[in-house]
């Protein structure tokens, strides 16, 4: 469970993680040039985040954004389910598992769709057209939902 949860928690909020991990490491280097560089990075951590966000908003096509919103929604649903499970307990464990793994599985499948349809990855997937990727996505999701509905009893 642990690994999955970590992966989960990381995904939604890049800026927080960045600043969180960068602060402890920055004081370490002693060499002049290195310090100045890292200081620069440290100072601009927030700026970098903002710039990233701007860049993302500008550069990402509409369709990708749509997919990202869906993925963010899945993450929220998954986290909610998990929090509920932690608070209330996992008595019908199969119900929790099927609900939770439905979100995880759907998230992963959607991420795959996003990767495959991304124009930048054209070289990697020359044999898969976006339409084919979408058909695969539908196929995978149907199987996933069949198993989840079967498992939830």
């Amino acid at each position: 469970m642990a690994a999955k949860r970590n992966a989960r928690d990381v995904t939604p909020s890049p800026p927080i993680n960045k600043s969180g991990t960068s602060t402890p490491t920055t004081p370490a280097p002693v060499v002049k040039s290195a310090t100045s560089k890292s200081k620069d990075a440290n100072l601009s951590a927030q700026e970098v985040a903002v710039a990233m966000w701007d860049n993302y908003v500008k550069a990402t096509p509409q369709r990708m954004k749509l997919i990202d919103v869906f993925m963010a929604f899945l993450v929220v649903v998954g986290v909610l389910q998990f929090v509920y499970c932690v608070i209330v307990g996992n008595y019908p464990f199969n119900a929790f598992l099927s609900g939770f793994s439905a979100t995880v599985g759907q998230f992963v499948l959607t991420a795959s769709l996003r990767i495959q349809t991304n124009a930048e990855n054209k070289a990697e997937f020359e044999s898969i057209s976006p339409e084919r990727a979408f058909a695969d996505y539908v196929f995978g999701s149907l199987i996933l939902h069949f198993f989840c509905v079967n498992f939830i009893n």
Binding site: S101, L109, S112, I115, G140, I143, F147, C148, F151
Partner: peptide, 17 residues
């Protein structure tokens, strides 16, 4: 590569279920 990601994650999510 993203091929590894796509194939493994699909396999794991569906196969485990």
């Amino acid at each position: 590569s993203s091929r590894v990601y796509v194939s493994y994650c699909t396999w794991y999510a569906l196969g485990t279920l």
